[in-house]
Design a protein around this nucleic acid. Structure first.
Lengths: 243, 243
DNA sequence: TTATTAAATGTCAAAATGACATTTAATAAT
DNA sequence: ATTATTAAATGTCATTTTGACATTTAATAA
C-alpha cells in the first residue's frame, strides 16, 4: 500500500480539478391493491419544491453504495426490508436539480401493498396513488415513473416478477388482473391460465378465496424453489406483446 | 426564479453536509472481426494503476450528462460518433477506487470493427483483445465486462442489436458466427437462416462474398426502416435459450 | 470433365399459440 | 327443496412456430 502522503500527491496531480457532485437515489415503488397498479409517493421535506409530491429518495452516504442507499431509504419510508429492487438507470442531466448538480440513480421496487399497510400507517407521510391518477412530480420524476413503468412491463413479459406485488396466497383471477393492469390490456382467461400453469411456478392450495364470488377461487402460492431457479429464464408471459 | 442569494441560503441549509463524489463513465466496447468477439481496451494514462489495461473511460464534466460523457470518451478513443451505446448500470461501491470515491456509470458499446481500423490506427493506444483472452483489468472493470457480456447476450436474444457490429454488407454465415460467438453455442444453419429471414429485416443484394468459399455467399444489408420500427419488438432470435 | 467445398434450402413431427363457449361450484332467492 | 345467479374453471381445434435432421447447388480447382 502506498503511504497516504503519496496518495495525496497523486490525487492532487491526477484527480484534482475534476468536479464533484451530489449523488442521490430515487425509488419508484409499485404496489397492487387487487384492482389497480399503484405508486408510493411522499411529500418532499426539503427545499426546493418543499411539500410537492416526489418519489422516495435520498442522498447516497459516504459509506454506502447506491444499492445500500436505496434499501435504506425504502426501509425508512415503508418499514420493509428485502424488497424487490432493481436499478433503472442514472439520471444525470446537468440542470436536473436547480440548486446544485445532483445525479440520481433510479430504482424500481415492487412491494406487497398489504405488508406495507399493516407495518405502519402514517409514520412517514407517504401515500399510494393510482398510477394513472397521480399528482405531478418534481424535477424529472415524472420521466422516471414513465421509464419505470416501461421497464416493469418489459421485465414482467419475460420474468415472473409480478408475484412480488401479490400476497403469499393469491388467486388466478387476481394474478390476471395484475397482468392486465401492468400491460394495459385484456387477456383471455383460458389462455392465461394455461400459460401460467405451464410455468410450473404455482402450487394450488386447498383453501379458497370466497370474497369475490359464490363459487370462490382457489388460492395458490409460489413454488419458491422453481421461482428462484427459473427466474432468469425467458417465459414469454404476455400474448401478442406489442412494443 | 429565486435570487442567487436565496438559492445559496437554501443550499447551505438543505444540501450542505452531504458528501460529493467524482462521477465517471466506463465503456465496454465490443467488436467482431468475422471470427471472434473482441473488446477494446486502453492502457491507463493516470495513477493509480498507470499503464495497466483498463476500459475506456473518463470523468463526467460539469456541463455534460453521463451519456454525453460516454459519447465524448468514445469519440476520443475510437474516432467514431453515433455509436450504439447503452447504459449498463452504475458501479458505486465506496472503495472501488482506492484514491477517492468515484462512482462509475458503465456503458456497453457496439461498433463495426472495420470502421474503427480504417479511421485511425494507433493515435490512441487502444487495442482489441479477444473477449476470452484479455488481460486482467483494473478496479472492478472485470466485473463490468462480465456484466456487459451477460447483458449483450440477453439483449441480442430479443433485439437485433448485433447488426451494429457488422459492416453494411454482410453474409448470413458471418451473421451466424457472430450469434454463435455471443451466445457461446452452435446453431443449426437451416433453423438460423429461417429465423433470420422471418424477421424481414434483411435485404438480399446481388453481390457475393467469395472470400470464404468457391460458391460465395450472398451479401445482405439491413432494412433500416424495418430495423428502426421493429427494434423494440421481441424477436426470440436464439433457439433454446438458457439463462 | 470431375472433384471439392461451403452456401443454400426442404421436410416432418412436436409443441406452442390464439381464438372461441361451456361446465362447474358455491351461494342466494324462491 | 328447487331454481336462479355468478364468477371460476376448463376444452377444442386450426394455425403457427419450433427443433431435429440431410440433400442440393453454385462456383472454383484439379
Amino acid at each position: 500500500m502506498k503511504s497516504s502522503r503519496t496518495l495525496n500527491r497523486i490525487k492532487m496531480i491526477e484527480y484534482s480539478g475534476q468536479p464533484h457532485y451530489l449523488v442521490a437515489v430515487d425509488c419508484i415503488v409499485f404496489g397492487f391493491d387487487g384492482e389497480h397498479l399503484k405508486i408510493l409517493l411522499v411529500k418532499r421535506g426539503l427545499e426546493p419544491e418543499i411539500n410537492k409530491w416526489s418519489l422516495i429518495g435520498g442522498f447516497v452516504g459516504a459509506q454506502e453504495s447506491p444499492d445500500d442507499a436505496a434499501n435504506r431509504v425504502l426501509k425508512k419510508n415503508t418499514g420493509l426490508e428485502g424488497i424487490y429492487l432493481e436499478q433503472l438507470q442514472i439520471y444525470g442531466e446537468p440542470q436536473r436539480d436547480p440548486i446544485e448538480r445532483t445525479l440520481s440513480v433510479g430504482y424500481f421496487a415492487l412491494i406487497d401493498i398489504n405488508k406495507y399497510q399493516t407495518q405502519l400507517s402514517d409514520d412517514y407521510h407517504a401515500e399510494w396513488f393510482l398510477i394513472n391518477d397521480r399528482p405531478k412530480l418534481i424535477f424529472d420524476h415524472d420521466q422516471m415513473v414513465a421509464d419505470a413503468r416501461k421497464k416493469l412491463r418489459y421485465k414482467a413479459a419475460l420474468h415472473p416478477i409480478l408475484f412480488e406485488m401479490l400476497p403469499k396466497k393469491f388467486t388466478i383471477p387476481q394474478l390476471q388482473i395484475l397482468f392486465e393492469e401492468v400491460n394495459d390490456t385484456k387477456i383471455d382467461t383460458r389462455n392465461f391460465s394455461r400459460k401460467i400453469s405451464s410455468t410450473g411456478l404455482l402450487i394450488k392450495l386447498a383453501e379458497k378465496d370466497k370474497s369475490g364470488s359464490k363459487k370462490g377461487a382457489f388460492y395458490f402460492k409460489l413454488d419458491k424453489k422453481k421461482y428462484n431457479a427459473n427466474f432468469q429464464a425467458f417465459l414469454n408471459l404476455i400474448p401478442n406483446l406489442k412494443p
